[in-house]
Write a protein that binds this DNA or RNA. Structure first.
Length: 136
DNA sequence: GCCAACGTTGGC
DNA sequence: GCCAACGTTGGC
């Protein structure tokens, strides 16, 4: 079981949209490293959803329901997508500023590789983030 | 809206 | 295969 952070622009597709849809195809990733991460995702893996525009913060948790398959928005056949379902909204969103102010999170990919839209999170980092969000 | 950092492309 | 030029992303 792995943990991830997946980024989205809320004006394109927000956590609220996911909550309404319940399940969605997480497509449109056009970065090789992010794609490789998508392909590593397994059913039941958990991912925190990060809003990268507006308040920059982690807002909710999604769960992988289908592992990587061909991205339907891609004609070339070289990109991948996964399916995720809405799990929960964080009681307290965790802001990028908070994360940066937390020494134990200094190695979080979200900080060190800010352009990576699908990033692995260690179990330890995941626990810290959950605690900051006051949820389990 | 600007700019720095990063990724990708293309010419050699 | 290298590297310069270009494009894109994301934080501020």
């Amino acid at each position: 079981m792995s943990f991830w952070i997946i980024k989205t622009e809320p004006n394109t597709y927000s956590l609220e949209d996911l909550e309404r849809d319940q399940t969605t195809c997480w497509d449109g990733v056009r970065n090789y490293q992010a794609r490789n991460n998508l392909r590593l995702m397994k059913v039941h893996d958990l991912a925190m959803v990060y809003h990268s525009v507006g308040p920059k913060e982690l807002v909710g948790i999604a769960q992988v329901t289908k592992s990587a398959y061909a991205d339907p928005t891609d004609k070339t056949g070289s990109w991948s997508a996964v399916d995720v379902k809405f799990k929960k909204r964080l009681i307290k969103p965790v802001t990028l500023a908070q994360i940066k102010a937390t020494p134990r999170l200094k190695d979080l990919k979200l900080v060190t590789q800010s352009r990576l839209s699908v990033a692995l999170v260690s179990e330890a980092q995941w626990s810290i983030l959950l605690a900051m969000a006051e949820t389990n």
